[in-house]
Design a protein around this nucleic acid. Sequence first.
DNA 1: GGGAATATTCCC
DNA 2: GGGAATATTCCC
Lengths: 106, 106
Amino acid sequence: MDGGAPVTTTTGGGGGGSGGGPAPFLLKTYEMVDDTMTDDIVSWSGSMKSFVVWNPPEFARVLLPSYFKHNNFSSFIRQLNTYELRRKHAYFRFLAECCCSIADIM
Amino acid sequence: MDGGAPVTTTTGGGGGGSGGGPAPFLLKTYEMVDDTMTDDIVSWSGSMKSFVVWNPPEFARVLLPSYFKHNNFSSFIRQLNTYELRRKHAYFRFLAECCCSIADIM
DNA sequence: GGGAATATTCCC
DNA sequence: GGGAATATTCCC
């Protein structure tokens, strides 16, 4: 609907059948962080076990809408906290507003 | 994020406090149908108690994204069915894929 | 059509 | 941070 921006190949947005792999949110976040094209906005941390949002405004304005159906940093954090709470697979661990970590295997 | 398209003044997307009035979906759908600028795509029916989607493809491609965070006709119908099921306020009644009705007061 | 999983928002 | 309401998707 916008032209540019990377179009994820992962499942859609909402929910439905869990299928097998991790939740769409986790996959999309992984892809987003892993994309070296946008390392100036968000990238893995030195330990590679967490990621850092270097430019929160650009992260919210440009990156979020290309992976999710919104452009709110707080909504992204809310989701992050959801998976931390459930610890369904313990992929993510929230540390601070601009510093999150991935716990184990993906 | 797109420039054109009518930007609704109603609540946001998701949920949160119910506040007071009808759900955002009902308000947005009402506005969308009521907008005379797009009567060739969707408009009230003769009785004014139901609305007709005259051009489903354009409805999904152009109108839906400007009011909701998607462009799927089926997702719109799903919501319509949700409110029919609950009959929370009995605003809408689903009749057919391209012909829905509004039951009472708005 | 609708159940259920996931997403997005609002509010505390 | 997280509860809860609403939205979006997937599947039957």
